[in-house]
Amino acid sequence: MIQTAPYNETTSEALMALRDAALAHLSGDPVAYDAVGAVAALDALDLSAAAAASPLALEAFAAVVIARGRRPRRAQKPLYRLFQARLAAGEQPAYFEFADRISAAAEHGFSLEGVIFNRPLTDVDQPQLWRDTQAALAAVAEVFGPAFLNSGTLLGAVREGRFIDHDDDVDIAVLMPATSAEDAAQQWAAGIATLIARGVVEKRARRNLGMFKLNSTSGVNIDVFPAWIVDDRLYLYPHTSGELSRDDLLPLAACKTTGLPIPRNAEGMLVVNYGPGWRKPDPGFAFAWAAANKKFADFRTALDKAGQS
């Protein structure tokens, strides 16, 4: 099958023009720049989902948003998607070159509040990051219950004995004593409030309440997710919704390479999370968040209520 570009040459030229003009403005170019007009021009392109996910479109959106000077945090999601796209294509230098140009905008008075520039874990002191992970596991276990490696970090530890080369954060989970989605939401919200009061977690905007982030000394985010058991079936937001049993998780085992706690049936959890082909590296893997959130609709609804109480 012949693969076609996600947009035509005219659209490509328009995106490049919008991106380059915004980058020039961010670099302090004295030429007059119509920030509001650039946003309108970008919206007028009415890009398809595939086109909007292309590296060029993601760069244009991020540059235009930050060049406007309002709500720079809106550039965070496209920057992250750009990072993932470049990693999957083996184009890391292109991402870092663009990120450096955006980062330099702060020197010219542009706000980068809420903007994070990702980097692969291969660039991080991995022994120190494992120590940070161990400290995070202990901190959250004290509040919620047993904590263990999760998702991409579990995958790397089991499959490769280290962090995955193309990953950019750490994933852990906690098992709460909740016996329903409603109980889980209440305990999750209460635990986060406790960690905020202790200064372990920063008070955060209401985005995905189903997880929170811890900082590490390595500068890498440690993402924490909730788990609970109902009628001996395991629920771990957002990937496991009753497919595994209590015995698949408990008693927790020790990872052979890191010594850190992992599910008793770690391979079974990786099948649920990543599919039967989890043993083969896939830098382009994208988690199906929309479908996952539907499976956890009761928990997310209860979370919204708990967050308002």
Rank of each mutant, 00 (worst) to 15 (best):
30 P>E: 07
96 F>K: 06
184 A>V: 01
145 G>A: 09
207 R>G: 05
178 A>I: 09
140 V>Y: 12
239 H>V: 10
47 L>C: 00
157 A>L: 02
93 P>L: 10
5 A>T: 12
132 D>C: 03
6 P>K: 08
224 V>C: 09
155 L>T: 09
70 R>A: 14
112 L>Y: 08
71 R>D: 15
276 P>H: 10
238 P>C: 02
85 A>N: 08
264 R>G: 00
2 I>D: 10
251 P>C: 07
292 A>G: 03
109 G>K: 10
53 A>L: 06
141 A>L: 01
40 A>R: 15
56 L>P: 01
262 I>S: 02
27 S>T: 10
136 A>K: 11
242 G>L: 08
276 P>L: 06
19 R>A: 00
116 I>E: 13
79 L>I: 03
217 T>D: 15
152 G>T: 13
257 T>L: 03
69 G>H: 09
163 F>C: 06
66 I>M: 03
268 G>Y: 07
99 A>Y: 10
52 A>W: 07
71 R>W: 10
85 A>I: 04
145 G>F: 11
197 A>R: 14
297 A>D: 14
122 T>I: 12
65 V>I: 15
208 N>P: 00
25 H>P: 00
67 A>T: 05
144 F>D: 12
228 W>S: 01
85 A>E: 14
122 T>L: 14
83 F>R: 02
237 Y>H: 15
114 G>S: 12
119 R>W: 03
74 R>D: 14
5 A>P: 01
2 I>A: 13
27 S>V: 04
169 D>H: 12
220 V>Q: 11
167 D>Q: 05
307 G>P: 06
117 F>D: 01
31 V>A: 15
163 F>S: 04
172 I>M: 12
64 V>M: 03
216 S>Q: 11
252 L>M: 06
52 A>F: 07
125 D>N: 15
258 T>Y: 06
25 H>C: 14
2 I>V: 14
179 T>C: 01
263 P>H: 05
265 N>M: 05
1 M>G: 15
309 S>F: 03
119 R>C: 02
274 Y>F: 15
183 D>E: 15
197 A>L: 05
166 H>Y: 15
219 G>N: 11
133 T>F: 08
261 P>C: 06
246 R>N: 08
36 V>I: 09
112 L>G: 07
246 R>D: 07
264 R>T: 04
48 S>K: 07
87 L>R: 13
285 F>K: 08
40 A>T: 12
305 K>H: 10
241 S>N: 13
52 A>C: 04
55 P>D: 07
277 G>T: 03
222 I>W: 12
113 E>M: 06
158 V>E: 15
144 F>E: 08
112 L>K: 08
272 V>W: 04
132 D>Q: 08
147 A>T: 10
142 E>T: 08
95 Y>M: 07
85 A>L: 04
224 V>H: 09
8 N>W: 04
187 Q>Y: 09
81 R>I: 00
244 L>G: 01
157 A>N: 15
43 D>V: 06
283 P>T: 06
